[in-house]
Nucleic acid binder design. Structure first.
Length: 492
RNA sequence: GGGCACAUAGCUUAGCUGGUAGAGCAGCCGACUCUUAAUCGGCAGGUCGACGGUUCGAUCCCGUCUGUGCCCA
């Protein structure tokens, strides 16, 4: 048995005392008929409440307590918010008041009473009866500063949610954002589907996968890094408009922008191009921002961001020329571009390809500077093994990434649907993998077979939901928008 | 993986040049029938993240480890 501080022993003794008195400290027979928000909605505008003879019942956690000997106020928190309760000895009786006196901050109670206003005008519940529903054994953080230690906030999110209303608001907003996206997609006749999270061949992105093992099949499996190849198989199957909102897993570093598991929406639309998806993305993001924020102009971490359309569109090359300190002639010459890249601090091998070099320079000099929504287009073919080649220039593909606040938020392209070309691109990736590139694609023969049946001309897109939520909730870290972010093992 | 910073009571924290810790809230006892960071009186609560080292003596200086944050790869 662990040693408990006096503080924790006191609570445990109270529970023991309740059991001894024949009172269950964990009953489950109280049915609240109202929430704190119901009371505000019904009586928030009513000045004279003397005549109101409503019977209100609420349940929630005691967050604060102000006692006066024969009367007391408590702050009750339920799923909708907070409401003040007024408890008077005269009203509930001597015995009940003595019991009430043993209730602690953190306990969950059920109460019944009628609405009234205090002398200072605060809408409150005048309690006729109050019962303990759950005895809490652990003290909550203090009322004024709340819980600020970030480690505890992430490890014990339940405490964060109890004492920090702004934490709860973020997750309420997150839920609303996802719902808005779902209904937007449904409104465009997209079908929501679920494809495997466990892949025999990880594909659809350049990333290191998590590896697991299936015992009965005695087979290695990979947690998916993207659903892309399965969703496009569905388009082959005639499901012309599909989307999936779900988790991807990438075995990479953890930072304010990266969690090993994160949420993406991927969607595929047959007979559409990547250019159609730029318009689509503007419409979707503006719809969500308007509903969540009530505006298209907002601030994120102190920086003004505007979703006013149309959004800027730039090629990778033009973005480098605009934001970097390099001339076109220099950038277009491989050797000059390489020495430029090294001059700005990049460590690159001599044999780096032109496409990879271009992307390295782009990420170093341009990406983080693009604060306003910007579609970056004309990606090198060799870094885009699943994208359709541009009809006029086979060195680039019909692809865009959406950058907002200096971060990649979405990635989309017209899909490569030529099975011969796709097989060649896979083989090129396999060659890269053999050379030691752990992020290169695997060969997926079945995916090529699906393309051989015929993938309609299609465009597809992935949107990082966590990063979108960060943007719309003004959160500095991805951990603030993921309920239980990944952390190291807790030390005892 | 590299650099910098942080770890003191349940929570939020102070702690000088090295002499084994102080507060607010929460808690306990008492007073108080309209408070809202309620108020007033009293009390209790600490292996100073862990392990080593230096020292007569370490929360403090040094090293290693663990966890966390920020920056970089």
């Amino acid at each position: 048995m662990e040693e408990l501080s006096e503080l924790l022993l006191q609570r445990r003794r109270k529970v023991d005392a309740l059991w001894e008195a024949g009172i269950n400290p964990y009953p489950n027979d109280f049915k609240p008929q109202h929430t704190s928000a119901d009371i505000v909605a019904a009586y928030g505008d009513v000045e004279q409440l003397d005549a109101v003879d409503a019977k209100i019942s609420v349940a929630g956690r005691i967050l604060a307590r102000r006692s006066f000997g024969k009367a007391a106020f408590i702050q009750l928190q339920d799923r909708k918010g907070r409401i003040q309760l007024y408890i008077k000895k005269d009203e509930i009786g001597e015995e009940a008041f003595a019991t009430f006196d043993t209730f602690d901050i953190g306990d969950i109670v059920g109460a019944e009473g009628f609405p009234f206003r205090t002398k200072t005008g605060e809408l409150s519940l005048h309690v006729r009866s109050i019962r303990l529903l759950v005895k809490s054994l652990l003290p909550l953080p203090e009322k004024f500063h709340g819980l600020t230690d970030v480690e505890t906030r992430y490890r014990q999110r339940y405490v964060d949610l109890i004492v920090n209303p702004e934490a709860r608001e973020i997750f309420v907003k997150r839920s609303r954002i996802v719902n808005l996206i779902r209904s937007f997609m449904a409104g465009r006749d997209f079908l929501e589907v679920e494809t495997p999270m466990m892949h025999q061949i990880p594909g659809g992105a350049t990333a290191r996968p998590f590896i697991t093992h299936h015992n009965t099949l005695d087979m290695e499996l990979y947690l998916r890094i993207a659903p892309e190849l399965y969703l496009k198989r569905l388009v082959v199957g005639g499901m012309d408009r599909v989307f999936e909102i779900n988790r991807n897993f990438r075995n990479e570093g953890i930072s304010v922008r990266h969690n090993p598991e994160f949420t993406m929406m991927e969607f595929y639309q047959a007979y559409a191009t990547y250019e159609d998806l730029m318009d689509f993305t503007e419409e979707l993001f503006c719809h969500v921002a308007q509903e969540i924020l009530g505006t298209l102009d907002f601030t994120n971490q102190g920086i003004d961001i505007s979703f006013q359309r149309p959004w800027k569109r730039l090629t990778v090359r033009d973005a480098i020329l605009e934001y970097g300190d390099i001339e076109a002639k220099q950038l277009d010459d491989h050797d000059l571009a390489l020495s430029y890249a090294r001059s700005i601090g990049l460590t690159l091998p001599d044999e780096i390809s032109s496409g990879k070099l271009l992307m390295e320079i782009f990420e170093e000099v341009a990406e983080h500077k693009m604060i306003q929504p910007t579609f970056i287009t004309a990606y090198p073919t060799e870094v885009s093994p699943l994208s359709r080649k541009n009809d006029h220039n086979p060195e680039i593909v019909d692809r865009f990434e959406l950058i907002i606040g200096g971060r990649e938020i979405a990635n989309a392209f017209s899909e490569l649907n030529d099975p011969v070309d796709q097989k060649e691109r896979f083989l090129a990736q396999v060659a890269e993998k053999d050379k030691g590139d752990e992020e290169a694609h695997y060969m997926d023969e079945d995916y090529v077979r699906a393309l051989e049946y015929g993938l309609p001309p299609t465009a597809g897109e992935g949107i990082g939901i966590d990063r979108l939520v960060m943007l719309l909730t003004d959160s500095p870290s991805i951990r603030d928008v993921i309920l239980f972010p990944q952390l190291r093992k807790e030390i005892k």
